[in-house]
Nucleic acid binder design. Structure first.
Lengths: 401, 401
DNA sequence: CATTTTAATTTGAAAGTCAAATTAAATAAG
DNA sequence: CTTATTTAATTTGACTTTCAAATTAAAATG
């Protein structure tokens, strides 16, 4: 039990150092409530183990305080190497981060097919990670952990994939398979969850302990951070925000049910109605067709506007429901493509504000976070970072004992 | 920090004893992972302080084990007295519990009006609690804490009521006012939250750490237990499930917005349409009129059935949305009146199951818990019990130091 | 009545935290 | 240039807490 106490201290301090970036010991003591003596002891352990390092202070403000100057601590990037992999339709996106979260390399590579057998996909990931490491001048076996984000229903704690649009089989022990194939600890989770992890670790959620992240790709995803931790539901599965119902007996969704949010806002939902808009070429690429539709709407085409505006209204309604249920302090709309600008518009956010219960208190902050192409992969890497940190702390505990 | 550790042990053990009812020390050690030595130390403290007492084992199974027999510990009912108060339209419902949760008295009393000034309501509660204590042969100043459940938007941590249908003023420091008026610590929260607390403490949620409680009264309420604790949102406010939107530009709700769940399933929503059903007497009592409507539906009246069935469908849709977002292991539908049987029917639960994302795993368990009339008041009392336990443990910590 | 078995308590060592004292490293003052 | 002052970090020693092991307690069994 005494060891539990030390573990708490270690966990808290490492997390705080990571969040702060660079921070002197005395501030760590103030921030965490742990005494200076203990902060010294624990950080000495970290230094000895190479997890953190001391750096000279280089503040813009010349500090000008007299007395012994503070010495900043920061995560030591060289301590570990992690990779993040996002599995999408036809490709893999990958990033390689050091232990500090600095990006060392990024890559994309094609997949043989949109749906693959688990073994095939695992091998593709192994090869891609090996190549990624090579590009950065490292060896694959230097990687301490790999995070993998995949669409579908995933039980993150056991690495079990109930179902995924990227896998040809159901109910796969994909985490174990990956760990075996890559020879490196692999951590798998629903992709939207991982974006939430990334926002918490690197992004706009750094200062918050309770917030929601809504992602739009071809589907609509939701990640929830509650009480400083990702909430995965009781079975470790992610939230299925895209399939919450917004209309009784509504539009048909690709999940086979009716009235899902996704059936109104996803690209395929827009295109279903777009055949009625002039200038549409049904044989063109879907992304291209959506672009044409949005252009028509902006140009004032009544039919196109009707389609796009309804999608916005429905999306606002879905967001408002989340606010009414969670009362979060922050909602992050994370996306990359201009394609979804119509859902991130001020009009939509305003409509959402009008649909939440009115009280004499500020409505939740809504921010749009346009990540680059590699948002999803960075999310996966952030998860790996988290897990690798845990493992490192465990090892520290065992060595000390 | 060392004191934090002891506090953790105390908290854990008292909670475990409360949950178990009666339990021997050795089992407490196994259950909590705390060593037998420490369990002895801490429970000795509890015994000394009178929070807990030893009782002879009286199992039906004659145990038949040789060796020194186990001695059960249980919460000592006489240690504290708490009251729970539920504020409804025209009345107050109250219960008096001992520290073990045993009900010593219960009462209802009328309120001068459905909406009252905060001071008036506080005095009414003071008088009612005093009377309740008298009925049980106790004095009001023997009560260690009073929990109060009120409809509306409440910031439980500060006892701040943003808005309530029972109060004539907004933004009232009602918790502080009550504590001042009663001369006893008062704890206020949204009523649906308190039902969740009660389910967690006494009810069907005792074995679960993550579940949802949906309550139906004149509105629809939601309480969420996440990670073993009530989740109140970031501002301490309860979830507003009743005002989640189920239809774009839908039916008008009493909150002034359109398409709220409540606007389809609440009694006033049913009655709004019931004027078209034969046999309705618009001047009758609302509860009576709802009864007439449901009778007509059961008797096969097409219009009445249409009204009632749609309410059920919409309710099922709302429940399905909760499941899709939370993936809970359990949903408790808590209610008292036969009036809502049509929402608790197997058909509704079946419709909900069809509207959730299908995976190869069991859907959440849905149970209906029909409490007696005093469900709400007991919820409030359970909250008070929780808070009084906390205060008792704090006192213990200070005395030891 | 001694033996065995199991529960609860006591004991003494080990681990951990922290306030206070000390040391370290800088600036300011004389 | 030296000394005083100030602030950060470390060390020290007292105190708390936990826990394994030893001991004691209380029963059934032979």
């Amino acid at each position: 039990m005494a060891v539990m106490q030390r573990e708490y201290g270690r966990r808290t301090l490492l997390r705080e150092i990571r969040r702060a970036g660079r921070v002197p010991r005395i501030e760590l003591a103030d921030l965490t409530g742990i005494s200076r003596a203990t902060v010294t002891t624990i950080t000495a352990e970290f230094l000895m183990d190479g997890l953190v390092e001391e750096v000279a202070r280089d503040e813009g403000e010349p500090d000008s305080r007299r007395g012994r100057p503070r010495v900043d601590l920061k995560i030591r990037g060289a301590a570990h190497l992690v990779a993040g992999v996002k599995i999408s339709h036809h490709k893999l996106s990958l990033v390689l981060l050091d232990f500090e979260g600095e990006q060392l390399a990024a890559e994309e590579c094609d997949l043989p097919a949109p749906v693959n057998a688990p073994e095939v996909l695992a091998k593709a990931i192994r090869d891609a990670v090996t190549h990624l490491a090579t590009v950065a001048g490292r060896r694959a076996d230097e990687v301490s952990g790999v995070g993998i984000g995949i669409a579908g229903i995933v039980e993150a704690n056991d690495g079990f994939v109930h179902w995924s649009p990227s896998l040809s089989a159901r109910n796969v022990e994909f985490g174990a398979l990956l760990t075996r194939t890559l020879g490196v600890p692999c951590f798998i989770d629903n992709d939207a969850n991982l974006v939430a992890v990334a926002e918490h670790a690197f992004g706009l959620g750094r200062e918050h302990s309770d917030f929601l992240v809504v992602t739009i790709e071809s589907g609509v995803g939701l990640g929830m951070v509650i009480g400083g931790a990702l909430y995965r539901g009781t079975r470790g599965c992610g939230a299925e925000f895209g399939h919450t119902k917004v209309q009784l007996n509504g539009a048909l969704c690709r999940c086979g049910q009716r009235g899902c949010l996704e059936a109104y806002v996803a690209d395929y939902a827009l295109l279903r109605e777009a055949t009625l808009v002039s200038g549409q070429d049904a044989t063109a690429d879907p992304a291209k067709r959506v672009e044409t539709l949005l252009d028509a709407a902006r140009a004032g085409d009544a039919t196109a506007r009707s389609i796009v505006e309804r999608a916005g209204q429905i999306f606002a309604m879905g967001l408002a429901n989340l606010v009414n249920i969670f009362d979060p302090e922050l909602i992050i709309l994370a996306g990359e493509q201009m394609q979804f600008d119509h859902l991130y518009s001020d009009a939509v956010i305003e409509a959402m504000r009008k649909s939440i219960v009115q009280v004499d208190k500020a409505p939740p902050e809504v921010v749009v976070h346009k990540w680059g192409d590699l948002m999803w992969a960075r999310g996966a890497a952030a998860y790996a970072l988290d897990k690798v940190s845990e493992l490192a702390l465990e090892r520290l505990g065992e060595n000390a004992a």
